[in-house]
Design a protein around this nucleic acid. Structure first.
Length: 596
DNA sequence: AGAAATATGACGCCCCTA
DNA sequence: TAGGGGCGTCATATTTCT
């Protein structure tokens, strides 16, 4: 413990104490400073750092073949680039493929022959009318006593595992009673998937002949549930089955292209059921627990998520997955292009930025920031040295800087980002979240949960030519209005925006932005996605005349890696609201497709 | 004085990459 | 095989606002 006695090579500093820091001669660090980014702009010297090119060749080939390039092309590109730098290889491949007429053929979602049997839409009459709606609405009068009891226990956190599962299934639209039966039959270890599969099968067999449309009895949308349970079950159940491939994150994480690497020739085919109108756009964290994106994809018409890191759009990383049915050709970025490096984004910091801090991009903007104490400890540690600190200190400081996204604001002085700096990095107008009685803490929270506007705008840009007169937007989990801002900055007119957002401060932010930008359309806001049932949607749709686009990024609390307390996956308390996104999307489709 | 906002530190784990 | 990154949450202490 006594660091001061003879603590040789105290390689790392204990940032959590105010003790004297005893830095001795340090042992050499095997890992020199590695660049955190795969940035294309910084790859001056390839080859130098990678000596195992031959060993990784087959891996490399597979990597690019997996992206949809032909093996021949990949081999050629690797040969040309010496097998070292994936970015250079990618560049070469992209050059080739724009020269060639034939587009890469992977990005074809429906190519899995195993499941083609299940392509028909199963019609599951899920429970009763109020199946999807939830607590504390007047609908609860029609819930069973048991369901109500569970709901009342939910807030107290005193639910058993079994009861939690029951409630989750109830939220998905099944009755508590049929869930109980399913859980009895499937056993205590059964997964959600197994249970829903069981329930669905039971319903199908029970109601096989009561299945004809009865338009005059009740609105169709309450009973229509186009989940391909069977397929969903197959995919999710067998994680270890080599036959079933779970969704993997691409590297580089550029989706169907980014402004600096436009994949002109890329195309994808969507299942018929996925084709709009309306268009939809769903977002969540890319690094979710295993299986989560498979499930999301299954629910959203089996569309493969587009994973994109916003570091290709701005100076801060943001790894996200987007499931959407938008065209992917002829996208264009917002102008002016935002600064792509920290140095460009914060010119004043250049003066203080030590040459041993190689960061060009910031890490993901989160909801929490580094403490003042930490930055003080860092300054104290650095001021013990005249010139550059020893490698061990550099490493410790860098670790903290990366962990808390600190920037240099003075000699030996680091600081967390200010809210207005985050706004800029995320593509919002300055002071977007400021004022109107919104606290600093709330700003950080809202910004940490927001879209990166340039990224989203790039994806939505294809709508501009399609809707010269503007669009009607349904924005779920709107937050501080990332989608609205993106569309506005693209010059896409907003006719009617129905925005659903739980937090009042966020609604206020969007409302105030709406007024300040002199929007000509209507902004209608709701506070609860769960209360947005078929009836209300019908009203809204008949008022605005249908939606052109449905955007939403459902809560990631239970998916995000930094959550140590309740990283429960899609079934988590907040993240299960994804099913409401799915439900509402499905309802809107049903209503809009219903013959008038 | 009481309420609200802010500040701080403690708290794993999964999955990828090197 | 080791290392690092991540739209987080909670209780408690302290400061600032009403």
């Amino acid at each position: 413990m006594d660091k001061s006695a003879s603590g040789e090579d105290s390689g790392s500093i204990d940032w959590n104490t105010d003790d004297e820091l005893e830095i001795q001669e340090y042992t050499t660090f095997s890992s020199s400073l590695t660049l955190a980014t795969h940035g294309t702009e910084a790859s001056a010297g390839n080859g130098g750092e990678n000596s195992s090119a031959i060993v990784s060749d087959s891996k490399l080939v597979n990597h690019f073949v997996g992206m949809g390039f032909s093996e021949k092309l990949v081999l050629k590109a690797i040969e040309e680039n010496g097998g070292g730098d994936t970015d250079s290889i990618l560049n070469t491949l992209l050059t080739y493929s724009t020269l060639e007429e034939s587009p890469p053929q992977q990005l074809c979602v429906n190519s899995d022959p195993i499941f083609s049997d299940y392509d028909e839409n199963l019609l599951c009459d899920l429970s009763d009318m109020d199946g999807w709606s939830e607590n504390e609405t007047e609908d609860s009068t029609s819930l069973s006593e048991e369901h109500k009891r569970l709901l009342s226990l939910e807030s107290t956190g005193s639910l058993s595992e079994k009861e939690k599962m029951l409630l989750l299934l109830a939220k998905m639209g099944y009755t508590v009673e049929e869930c109980s039966i399913a859980m009895e039959r499937c056993g205590p270890e059964a997964s959600v998937v197994e249970l829903t599969d069981f329930i669905c099968a039971a319903q199908l067999s029970r109601e096989a002949d009561v299945y004809l449309p009865d338009d005059d009895l009740k609105p169709r949308y309450n009973g229509v549930c186009k989940i391909k349970k069977r397929k969903f079950f197959e995919i999710c159940k067998k994680k270890n089955d080599p036959e079933t491939e779970t969704i993997r994150l691409p590297n580089p994480m550029i989706g169907f292209g980014v402004p600096s690497l436009q994949l002109e020739s890329i195309s994808r085919s969507l299942p018929d059921s996925a084709i709009g109108p309306p268009f939809f756009y769903y977002e969540n964290v890319a690094l979710a627990p295993k299986g989560v994106w498979d499930t999301i994809s299954r629910f959203l018409n089996d569309i493969e998520p587009e994973f994109v890191d916003s570091k290709y759009f701005c100076a801060t990383a943001r790894k996200r997955g987007y499931v959407h049915n938008l065209p992917v050709q002829n996208r264009f970025p917002l102008v002016p292009l935002p600064p792509l490096t920290v140095q460009q984004a914060f010119p004043l910091s250049r003066k203080w930025w030590p040459q041993w801090d190689p960061r060009e991009k910031l890490n993901c903007i989160q909801t929490a920031i580094g403490s003042a104490k930490l930055t003080e400890r860092i300054r104290n540690a650095l001021e013990r040295f005249d010139g550059d600190p020893p490698t061990s200190v550099q490493k410790s400081v860098l670790d903290e800087c990366r962990k808390w996204n600190l920037v240099w604001v003075g000699r030996n002085k680091v600081a967390p980002l200010e809210p207005d700096e985050m706004e800029m990095l995320l593509g919002f107008p300055k002071n977007h979240t400021r004022g109107g009685g919104i606290s600093r803490t709330d700003r950080y929270k809202s910004l940490g949960n927001s879209f990166q506007v340039d990224t989203v705008a790039y994806h939505l840009s294809v709508l501009k030519d399609m809707f010269p007169d503007g669009i009607n937007l349904l924005s779920l989990f709107s937050g501080i209005g990332g989608a609205e801002v993106a569309l506005h900055r693209l010059g896409i007119k907003l006719k009617n925006v129905v925005s659903v957002e739980k937090s009042k401060v966020n609604r206020d932010i969007v409302r105030s932005w709406w007024e300040q930008t002199n929007q000509a359309g209507n902004l209608i806001d709701f506070d609860d996605v769960q209360a947005l049932d078929g009836e209300r949607l019908e009203e809204v749709i008949s008022y605005v005349g249908g939606f052109d686009l449905i955007v939403g990024g459902s809560p990631c609390n239970n998916l995000a890696g930094s959550n140590r307390v309740s990283r429960d996956g899609l079934e988590g308390k907040e993240s299960s609201l994804f099913y409401d996104y799915f439900r509402i999307l499905d309802l809107v489709k049903s209503i809009m497709h219903r013959p008038a």
